[in-house]
């Protein structure tokens, strides 16, 4: 998806090989190609712009330091999405641990995954356009394994095959997870969608 061959420009795989040979311009080009889509992915996964940028910075730093770990049998996009995805999941687990620790001290239930949007009423959902914040909250509320594939498929628009390579699960499992993730989103958003229709 992300390898570029238009206008004879080098592919991602050619660029990473050039970078391995010491060409820093090839690295800079890869950063330019991927920084926005990776930040968007990490933002949708974590729900925080600063955290998303930190994750993507760390991703490119790892690419810089561990370029030799890239094997040309895989697509570069698969490799870099795997790094970002793993870092984002680690960050999410770190947050959950921290939240559980802090909430356990005061006896509250962990309501992190409840869909709450007290600021937005139905009147704000104009002309069947679902509010970005509501959608983002619904994505955040998904269990991790569904959230990951939904973002890859429905926001980043990756192929099922590429998602399968990134997440390292069989193609059939990817399709099944995407379908179940969408059904969970539909359950969470059906109330808001009903308001829109009426």
């Amino acid at each position: 998806m992300t390898s570029k061959n238009k206008n004879n420009s080098p592919t991602d795989e050619q660029l990473i090989e050039k970078f391995k040979e010491g060409n820093i311009y090839a690295y800079n080009e890869l950063v330019r190609r991927y920084k926005d889509q990776l930040v968007n992915f990490a933002y949708r996964f974590l729900g925080d712009k600063d955290d998303a940028e930190d994750i993507v910075q760390e991703t490119f730093l790892r690419v810089y330091k561990k370029k030799e770990a890239y094997k040309s049998v895989a697509k570069f996009s698969t490799w870099i999405y795997t790094i970002t995805g793993n870092l984002a999941k680690t960050e999410l687990r770190r947050r959950k641990r921290r939240k559980i620790l802090s909430l356990s001290n005061i006896g509250y239930e962990d309501k992190d995954f409840d869909l709450k949007d007290t600021d937005s009423g139905p009147e704000e959902l104009v002309d069947k356009v679902i509010n970005d914040k509501i959608i983002q909250n619904a994505i955040q509320a998904l269990p991790e394994k569904f959230k990951e594939v939904i973002i890859f498929r429905d926001i980043q628009e990756l192929s099922y095959e590429e998602i399968s390579s990134i997440v390292k699960i069989p193609l059939g499992t990817v399709k099944s997870r995407v379908n179940r993730g969408r059904l969970k989103l539909q359950e969470k958003l059906s109330g808001y969608l009903k308001e829109i229709k009426e």
């Binding site: 990776l38 930040v39 679902i130 939904i150 429905d154 926001i155």
Partner: peptide
């Protein structure tokens, strides 16, 4: 709606 979400770019 998912595909129409605004893209969040790097700073």
């Amino acid at each position: 709606s998912l595909r129409d979400l605004p893209r969040i770019d790097a700073s």
